[in-house]
């Protein structure tokens, strides 16, 4: 008995010293950032941007590995089961929260399998339509949609996509079952919207800003709590009478559960320093977004965000009755 507990104590002590020593020397080799979407997409872009700046701060290269598939759950699953040594981290977006409900047989427990590093950025969304769509403003859009729900078509980029989530919220907010038409990704959906083959869509500013500026599509509202600097004339959804329809595509950085707290703190500090870089802010502005303030790029803020978002989307997805598995 005594021996075992002594041994256990020794072992625990060894682990503690090892982890402290480990944290002091971390990082010693290159770190892999898993982006659970294909290369070149908006999430990949965000990932590569911050990976570059975080590398500078950490003094070790962070390389991006794209593990696409199944709405980001494959990549997240990989990281969940990776070694918790801080050399594998995950960049994921809002899908981290929604997949907890959209996928009923995930290989990992969303709230249990990860350590939180911090929030990276939040991208607002816009409600847009083909350029010759009748309603003149957001208020008339809402009444028009209610009256013509069965003839209006709404595009989305596939189940679980940002546009799909926003579309579900919109339909539940206006209480009208619009015919939804899924596409494989934002590109084809936007093409058909430009061609007038489909009526409305709700998508991230990343994808819509340039088209709105170019006048090729019509914008009705933004889903952020306040108006956006780039579109001062676009009302927010709350102003237009749909409070509670605020939605943003947020990105968070995670590490596998059990990653030493010192390492998580080190990563978090690197993230904050990357986000404070004016170059990053500039590039993110091009995407219609801004870096999360230092107070949000923290483990606590990300944990709170993830838990709140899981709770928020669960009823929305269950009401719509759509699952991705």
């Amino acid at each position: 008995m005594a021996l075992t507990s002594k041994l256990a104590g020794l072992a625990a002590g060894a682990v503690l010293t090892a982890s402290a020593a480990f944290a002091q020397t971390y990082p010693e080799r290159q770190i892999t950032m898993v982006v659970p979407f294909s290369a070149g997409g908006p999430t990949d872009t965000v990932g590569r941007l911050i990976a570059e700046r975080m590398s500078a701060d950490l003094g070790q290269q962070i390389i991006v590995e794209n593990v696409g598939g199944a709405g980001g759950t494959l990549g997240a699953g990989n990281v969940a089961s990776a070694e918790a040594d801080g050399y594998t981290i995950l960049l994921h977006h809002i899908g981290m929260a929604t997949s907890a409900t959209l996928y009923r047989n995930l290989a990992y427990n969303t709230t249990e399998a990860f350590e939180y590093v911090g929030l990276v950025t939040e991208v607002p969304m816009t409600i847009v339509a083909r350029k010759d769509f009748e309603p003149a403003d957001f208020a008339s859009l809402i009444s028009y949609v209610k009256e013509n729900a069965d003839t209006i078509t709404m595009a989305n980029a596939g189940i679980g996509a940002a546009s799909h989530l926003c579309g579900m919220l919109f339909m539940q907010a206006v209480e009208a079952p619009i015919v939804t038409v899924p596409y494989k990704g934002t590109g084809p959906a936007m093409t058909e919207l430009l061609g007038g083959q489909i009526d409305i869509m709700c998508d991230q500013t990343t994808n819509t800003t340039e088209q709105i500026k170019g006048g090729t599509i019509k914008a009705y509202a933004v889903t952020s709590p306040a108006r956006l600097e780039i579109f001062p004339d676009l009302p927010t959804v709350a102003e237009g009478g749909l409070p509670g329809m605020e939605v943003s595509i947020w990105h968070g950085l995670y590490a596998p559960k059990g990653t030493p707290p010192e390492v998580v703190e080190r990563l978090s500090a690197a993230l904050q320093s990357a986000l404070a870089d004016p170059g990053i802010a500039e590039k993110l502005a091009e995407l219609g977004t801004a870096p999360s303030p230092a107070a949000d790029a923290t483990p606590a803020a990300l944990k709170a965000k993830l838990e709140a978002e899981i709770a928020r989307w669960k009823p929305v997805i269950e009401t719509a009755g759509v699952y991705a598995d």
Partner: peptide, 27 residues
């Protein structure tokens, strides 16, 4: 002309443009 990628290769090009600070669009 539209800023829309027609295939995965073009999607990668768009990604590269965005990283360079050019958001492709109709303009």
């Amino acid at each position: 002309t539209l800023g829309i990628p027609a295939n995965p290769v073009m999607a990668l090009m768009v990604g590269a443009m965005i990283i360079q600070g050019i958001v492709p669009g109709p303009n």
